[in-house]
Computed example of a mutant assay.
Amino acid sequence: MAERARFYPGAVPYADLTFAQWNDMPDGAARRTAHEIADRHGLAVVGLEETGYAGRSHRMALFDRDGMRFALVPGGRPTLGYDAARFQPAPDQVASYAESASEYGLPPLSEYVDAMTSSVRVAEIPAMLVAVEAFDPCEIVLAPDDPRVLELVASAGSRLGGVSMFRSAGGLEVEFDRSGRVVRARVTREVSYDEAMAGLASIGLRTTTPDEWEWACGAGAATLFRWGEDNANDGYPFDYKTGPHRQKNLWGLAIGQDPYRHEATSDRTIVCGGDGGGATCGGSGFFLGWLTLATAYRDTDFGQWLASEDGYADEILTRPVIELN
């Protein structure tokens, strides 16, 4: 992005704050900006620090809203999508794809990557606050002393001895520490896409658009993945509990880490950050499994199926956004 104009605390609106302007600010001005944003939106500033990811640096700002953590994602006119013609795969990626292509009758590698990623385009993205963790509107967090939790513990009795987690048939899940104390409880329920979006709106939030999700995930990285072009060659993302995909990204977001945890966007036919685990569960090949974490990944068929009457998901993960003013 080319914007280099100065941006001063108190400027209106903060939605116009660009990546370059935010990182060019003197430290004092950045602190004032963060606190002004917090004051305007009823938040608390919980962190302001220099951070880095995949060789790039950034000034990260974190906020708290009733226990939900948000990070500042500056805006601008970034180039999104991926140009598969410039992809130069590593030998192990070529070998992995060749095995998959032979088994499933797939086109040449570049053609396949092009079909499974969004097209290159320039987008207008506002500065916004984006949830650090994905949010599941199907999940209701309960306090350890909630009557439903106490009733479950009392009714289960000796069956809870030594267990770390107990699930009831009604969707109530309770976790215990080694002493048997309840440390986490939640109840899950099935909701539709429309119910999930309405639930976000009811607490003053919305989910990302597909463009905003790409920008939030890749932070402007032009590579296939937000960390580069390569991926591990002896396992699927789910097999690795550490690695660049498990690290928080440049903005400080835990995003695009597990293909089983795809996220809904404002377009109900477009999901990002995974494929529901289809490539991994189906043993499609390591490269295809990792490709689902590409920043611009698009599985059109999967998205359209989820949006159809036949589509089913036991959770609808979203990436909540607080719009800035």
Rank of each mutant, 00 (worst) to 15 (best):
R59A: 03
T280D: 08
Y53G: 06
Y193W: 14
E3P: 03
A54F: 06
M116P: 03
M1C: 05
D145C: 07
P259Y: 05
A185I: 07
V113S: 01
L129T: 01
L205W: 04
A143V: 02
S57Y: 07
N249V: 06
S155Q: 02
Y8I: 15
G256H: 13
F302Y: 08
F7D: 02
A54K: 04
L150W: 07
H58Y: 15
Y297W: 07
L62E: 06
G256S: 15
T18K: 08
E214V: 02
A296S: 15
V321K: 04
A127C: 10
T51Q: 11
E151Y: 01
D258K: 03
W215L: 12
V122E: 03
E151L: 01
S119W: 09
F135Q: 09
C217Q: 15
S179T: 13
M116L: 12
A127Q: 02
P137L: 11
T117Y: 01
S168D: 11
H41S: 05
E133I: 13
Y53R: 04
V191C: 13
S164V: 04
G243V: 02
Y8A: 13
Y97V: 00
M68W: 11
L150E: 05
W215Y: 08
L142Q: 00
P78C: 10
E3Y: 14
D310E: 15
P144I: 01
Q257G: 08
T300N: 09
M68Y: 10
S110D: 05
P244T: 12
E315N: 15
R40Q: 14
M197Y: 04
R178N: 08
V321M: 08
L172C: 11
E229W: 12
A98C: 03
F238N: 00
T79Y: 00
R186E: 13
R59N: 04
L200N: 02
V73H: 11
D136P: 13
S57N: 12
P147F: 00
E139A: 01
T188W: 01
T300H: 10
M25Y: 11
G170D: 13
D66T: 05
N23R: 14
P144R: 01
E50I: 05
G256C: 06
T208L: 07
R40C: 11
D27P: 04
R31Y: 09
D16E: 09
D239W: 03
T300R: 12
